[in-house]
Design a protein around this nucleic acid. Structure first.
Length: 328
DNA sequence: TTTCACATACCAATTACCTCA
DNA sequence: TCTGAGGTAATTGGTATGTGA
């Protein structure tokens, strides 16, 4: 299996930054299509009659461009109204200890590219420091890379990496000595962690930095891990909702096809009636042939008007029915 | 007021690890 | 023991938006 290469990706990070700059403001329209169907990030108002109850009532009002674009913005002061969240955020001070720079160690060695492939303990409870909380709250690895990559010297990067590699990889129950920092260890969340994350997600599908840090502390994870979990969770939710939408559209399509067929048939019948010689009762009163006189070929489903003498089809070329409908 | 550089947050797509049948 | 599938944490590249100079 191909192993991802660890290392400092600052050139790539720089390139990404340049690209981001260059492309800033140029919308590809990606997601717009989705937004039309799903209401932006999946949490906004949607016109689809069927929606899974997979998301919290309201996303937090961060600088989420998509949700802001499609849903009415809620003041951030009122966004986090769940009691659980208030308790969670409020509990920041009495949970955990030490430094919250797990995120720093994750990305410091090159920002986005300086991923934890180097073998940090993904299940390791990060040491936290309350004063560093806000800084650790920075979620975007690219941002961290850009920011810290400029601020830290190479030696600092090395120190942090060294600290990372000493962490135990509990997901495999062993050290990563043999991996030499080239493998990506995968966190396995405990049931309790998953439950709490789910609970939090039900309250809010997005997190602000404080919530993220509080949750990370409570879970013994790094803020980045919490953020990634929420991102993936949102993606899963969206996927599920898309599947539901797709199924609904299929059914809707089938229904419309059937309706269309029925209307076509009805149209033919009406045309047939129009073509058929009306029964003249008086000068100003025409009595159309009764519907009972209409006949349909059972195989081709075309309608014919019938009189006592012969079969007259609404369209030419249907005379075959005059012989036998079985001829179709 | 407009423009630019930067920071931040989010998403889609993908990768890769891990578990399980 | 091996293997493929599925779930999912993590990575990567991209976009949108806010802010300060």
């Amino acid at each position: 299996m191909a192993m991802m290469v660890d290392g400092c990706d600052r050139p790539r990070e720089e390139a990404h930054r340049m690209r981001a700059m260059a492309s800033s403001g140029a919308s590809l329209g990606l997601g717009v299509e989705f937004s039309m169907v799903r209401g932006g990030d999946g949490v906004g108002p949607r016109s689809c009659p069927v929606q899974l109850d997979l998301l919290p009532l309201r996303p937090s009002s961060q600088s989420n461009s998509n949700s802001q674009a499609t849903a009415p913005s809620v003041p951030s002061s009122t966004s986090y109204r769940g009691l659980a969240w208030q308790a969670l955020v409020g509990s920041t001070t009495n949970s955990g200890s030490g430094n919250d720079d797990g995120e720093v160690t994750t990305y410091a060695s090159g920002g986005r590219g300086g991923s934890p492939r180097g073998g940090i303990d993904v299940n390791q409870i990060p040491s936290t420091d309350g004063e560093e909380e806000e800084e650790a709250a920075v979620s975007s690895p690219s941002s961290i890379g850009m920011k810290r990559g400029r601020e830290k010297s190479g030696q600092e990067f090395e120190v942090e990496r060294e600290r990372n590699t000493t962490c135990e990889m509990s997901s495999r129950g062993g050290s990563d000595d043999e991996d030499e920092g080239t493998t990506r260890k995968k966190l396995r969340l405990s049931k309790e962690q998953s439950a709490l994350l789910e609970e939090s997600f039900k309250e809010h599908s997005t997190l602000n930095p404080k919530q993220k840090n509080a949750l990370a502390k409570q879970l013994g994870l790094r803020p980045r891990q919490v953020e990634v979990w929420f991102q993936n969770r949102r993606a899963r939710t969206k996927l599920k909702q898309t599947e539901v939408d797709c199924e609904l559209l299929k059914r809707c399509c089938d229904s419309l096809k059937e309706e269309n067929r029925r209307l076509q048939k009805e149209l033919l019948e009406l045309r047939a009636i129009k073509v058929a010689p009306p029964c003249v009762i008086s000068h100003d009163y025409y009595m159309p042939l009764p519907a009972a006189t209409l006949t349909m070929c059972p195989s081709c489903e075309r309608v014919a008007t019938v009189d006592n003498r012969s079969l007259t089809f609404a369209k030419p070329g249907f005379s075959h029915l005059s012989q036998s409908s079985a001829a179709c």
